[in-house]
């Protein structure tokens, strides 16, 4: 287990290094240098020179890359060009909206998909299964941001159960914030839940046709017992993969959903930064997003090993 973890950890670090490399150099190949791009074509030469100095564009690229990485490691992402404030503070504030939103959505999606998938698999071919399969087929086709707009129309504008958007801030109370994140989380979670419950169902059906389920029945376990004691854990392996992938989608999706609900998250920050040509902020936010996806994949890898004893002894 230790060896397995160690190997995953090494590959995590390598992934992070390459990802940071890619992000840094994509931003670097911006037409012209970042400074003139950020200032636009009408910039004064003095301002340009000052910004170049400030961004450290006069030192060689590889040194700049190293100091960027070193800065991030110590939690220093640099200064925003537009706001003249430390980026780490800006990101930290926004992160406390985006991350809870993604986790909240992941929870809803998982909690919904498991029972639905299990129910459909155990009632395969019957009315309930067919209805669920139809509903999930539709759920997969719905764009989450459109679903969000419709939910706003129904629950905020017509029924007035929720506010149409905005975020009160965590200092105003946990439940108030949770409430304001509920519609966004639901609109992110339901389409994902549709996918996840289909995966859950087909994975369970695969496992239920395995020889060891027949063995379990021959022992005298009934269908329900063999499902809970033998099938479910085996069916989790493909489901975990999808949950890992979904987190990446949810992080990205939450950026879009934030636009619908006017939430002050990473999405807002990054779109503002793009329109204000604040490349350092874009670079940092993208790095944070990619970082979180890689971390989640690492966690998924570890949970494979927790589920499957065969992996624990492998390198």
């Amino acid at each position: 287990m230790l060896r397995y973890t160690l190997k995953r950890l090494i590959s995590l670090v390598i992934s992070l290094i390459i990802a940071s490399f890619v992000i840094f150099f994509v931003i670097e190949i911006a037409p012209g240098d970042p400074a003139s791009f950020m200032l636009g074509i009408n910039a004064q030469p003095e301002t340009l020179a000052a910004l170049k100095e400030e961004l450290g564009l006069n030192i060689p690229k590889h040194e700049r890359y190293l100091s960027w990485v070193a800065g991030m490691l110590s939690g220093d992402f640099g200064m925003s060009y537009t706001y003249r404030t430390p980026i780490n503070q800006m990101i930290a504030d926004r992160m406390w909206v985006s991350l809870p939103l993604a986790v909240y959505a992941l929870l809803i999606s998982t909690l919904l998909a498991f029972p639905v998938g299990i129910y459909a698999a155990t009632n395969r071919g019957k009315g309930g299964d067919i209805t669920i399969m139809g509903a999930t087929q539709l759920g997969i086709a719905v764009p989450n941001f459109w679903f969000a707009m419709i939910m706003v129309l129904i629950f905020a504008i017509n029924l007035r159960w929720f506010s149409a958007g905005g975020f009160p801030g965590w200092e105003k109370g946990f439940f108030l914030c949770l409430k304001s994140l509920t519609l966004p989380a639901l609109s992110l979670a339901l389409p994902q839940a549709a996918i996840l419950s289909r995966v859950m169902r087909s994975s369970l059906l695969d496992v239920l046709s395995e020889d060891y389920i027949r063995t379990a029945r021959a022992k005298g376990l009934n269908k329900r017992q063999s499902l809970w004691r033998h099938a479910l854990r085996n069916a989790m392996i493909p489901v975990l993969t999808i949950i890992g992938l979904q987190f990446a989608f949810l992080m990205a999706g939450s950026i879009i959903i934030e636009q619908v609900f006017f939430l002050p998250g990473l999405g807002r920050l990054v779109f503002q930064a793009i329109s204000q040509r604040d490349l350092i902020v874009v670079e940092s936010v993208v790095m944070i997003l990619v970082f979180s996806v890689i971390i989640v994949n690492f966690i998924v890898d570890l949970s494979y090993a927790a589920v499957d004893p065969r992996l624990r002894n492998r390198v």
Binding site: S15, A30, A248, A252, I274, V285, V290
Partner: peptide
């Protein structure tokens, strides 16, 4: 590695540049 970059993130990077 590419899987760690959702298409939205790639789009953000490209658009920014």
């Amino acid at each position: 590695l590419v899987f760690a970059f959702p298409s939205l993130v790639i789009a953000i990077l490209i658009t920014a540049v």
